[in-house]
Simulated scan of single mutants.
Amino acid sequence: MTNQEAIELIGGGTNGEQEQYWLDLGCGTGTFTEALATVLPAHSNITGVDKTTNSFRRK
């Protein structure tokens, strides 16, 4: 899945202007996590969790 496909999958599920808190279970390489970071309002928080260490590196 590409970042753009993940953004389209999220669609309007992040509506609102207040900060939001998300938990991405099984984040893998972080495609969905990065897509969330693209569409969430400022100061939102995303926690990515995966059973494989170092699968998602913060940029």
Rank of each mutant, 00 (worst) to 15 (best):
M1A: 01
T2F: 02
T2C: 03
N3A: 07
I7A: 08
L9W: 09
G11K: 11
G12L: 06
G12S: 15
G12P: 06
T14E: 07
N15E: 13
N15C: 09
G16S: 04
G16Y: 01
Q18D: 15
E19N: 13
Y21Q: 13
Y21K: 08
W22I: 15
W22Q: 05
L23K: 04
L23H: 08
D24Y: 06
D24Q: 09
L25H: 02
G26M: 00
G26W: 01
G28Q: 08
F32C: 14
T33Y: 12
T33N: 11
E34I: 03
E34H: 05
E34W: 06
A35L: 01
L36H: 10
A37F: 05
A37E: 06
T38R: 11
V39E: 11
V39T: 12
V39L: 13
L40R: 09
L40V: 12
P41H: 12
A42R: 08
H43N: 15
S44H: 01
N45W: 14
N45A: 13
T47S: 12
T47L: 14
T47E: 12
G48M: 02
G48N: 08
V49G: 00
V49C: 01
D50G: 00
K51M: 13
K51H: 10
K51C: 07
T52L: 15
T53K: 15
T53D: 14
T53R: 10
S55V: 01
S55K: 06
F56D: 03
R57Q: 15
R57S: 14
R58H: 05
R58A: 12
K59N: 14
